[in-house]
């Protein structure tokens, strides 16, 4: 177990870390404006992946077009979720919102199992992404690098947007106090919708990245990444965009290293890592999942 090995594992984890970062940013933004853990976010991610898969294998579109279609489908899913699941129960308390979002998550997943079956379906990878390169003994795939760079760019643009634009400032204002924001002339409903649009678009990108990286999609694919993204959002401090992104990366790397140091029969235990992290968070800060001063950064 030498340094090269560890470094190799970290590089392998770049794409997983990126996907979790993208998911965590969506979680944290939506939690910010709605005070809601959107458990169906993993399903929005899955819908993006499915759409891209179908656009490529069923309709024969190239990957970039498939990515755009995936974003459209996920955004639509996110907006419909907000409109028909979350808006009707707004203001009815934490537990109601919690259960509604859990139900939405299970409902969408079950619907996809009904439509497509529960098995994995292949997600084709275009030739131009299949390259690998060596740095000395260390191997890195082009896909890993591209996903990572893409994620960093998206996160930086988003941070700039949240920090500097009128809409970004309004999002932070609504997160802090919805009623006061309304009393300043902000239509908080449209701000919430805008937040779902952004969060869902990020989830679609993560979903397509997932399909490319692991080569398949299935209805339950959103479950573990969803939980991990959510935990990363909590770790990063709810409402903290860069914190969520960095925590997402760390959690991805942590998961990969966790199994890298266990004998290979335990490789199926990768998701256990996030549960351990969650356990530790809850142990030290039992209220950590729900209470936080929203302070978007």
């Amino acid at each position: 177990m030498d340094l090269t090995y560890i470094f190799q594992q970290v590089l392998n984890a770049l794409s997983l870390g990126s996907m979790l970062a993208l998911l965590a940013v969506g979680y944290t933004m939506i939690y910010g404006v709605l005070g809601l853990i959107n458990f169906a976010h993993g399903e929005v991610f899955m819908i993006g992946a499915f759409t891209a898969m179908y656009a490529i294998t069923g309709l024969g579109f190239p990957l970039p077009i498939a990515l755009i279609l995936a974003i459209i489908a996920s955004v639509l899913a996110g907006v419909l979720l907000e409109r028909f699941c979350y808006r009707p129960v707004q203001g009815s308390g934490d537990i109601t919102l919690f259960i509604t979002s859990l139900a939405a998550s299970i409902g969408i997943r079950s619907l996809f199992v009904m439509l497509f079956g529960s098995r994995s379906m292949q997600f084709p990878m275009p030739k131009y992404l299949q390259g690998i390169r060596f740095w000395g003994d260390i191997l890195i795939t082009d896909l890993n690098l591209i996903i990572f760079v893409f994620t960093v760019i998206i996160t930086l643009i988003l941070s700039f947007f949240i920090k500097n634009t009128k809409l970004g400032i309004a999002m932070r204002g609504v997160s802090y106090n919805k009623q006061t924001a309304e009393a300043m002339g902000i239509n908080s409903t449209s701000i919430i919708v805008a937040t779902f649009v952004i969060g869902s678009a990020l989830a679609a990108v993560a979903g397509v990245a997932w399909g490319l990286q692991y080569g398949n999609v299935r209805p339950a694919m959103g479950y573990h990444p969803g939980i991990s993204g959510f935990i990363a959002a909590v770790l990063g401090g709810i409402g903290n965009i860069s914190g969520a992104a960095i925590s997402g990366f760390l959690l991805g790397v942590g998961q990969v290293l966790f199994v890298a140091f266990l004998p290979s029969v335990y490789s199926g235990f990768r998701p256990l890592f996030v549960w351990i992290v969650l356990f530790i968070i809850l142990f030290y800060k039992p209220t950590g999942l729900f209470r936080s001063n929203i302070k978007w950064e």
Partner: peptide, 9 residues
Amino acid sequence: VFGNLNVYE
């Protein structure tokens, strides 16, 4: 006031 925003914001 929005405590998470600066004066300008």
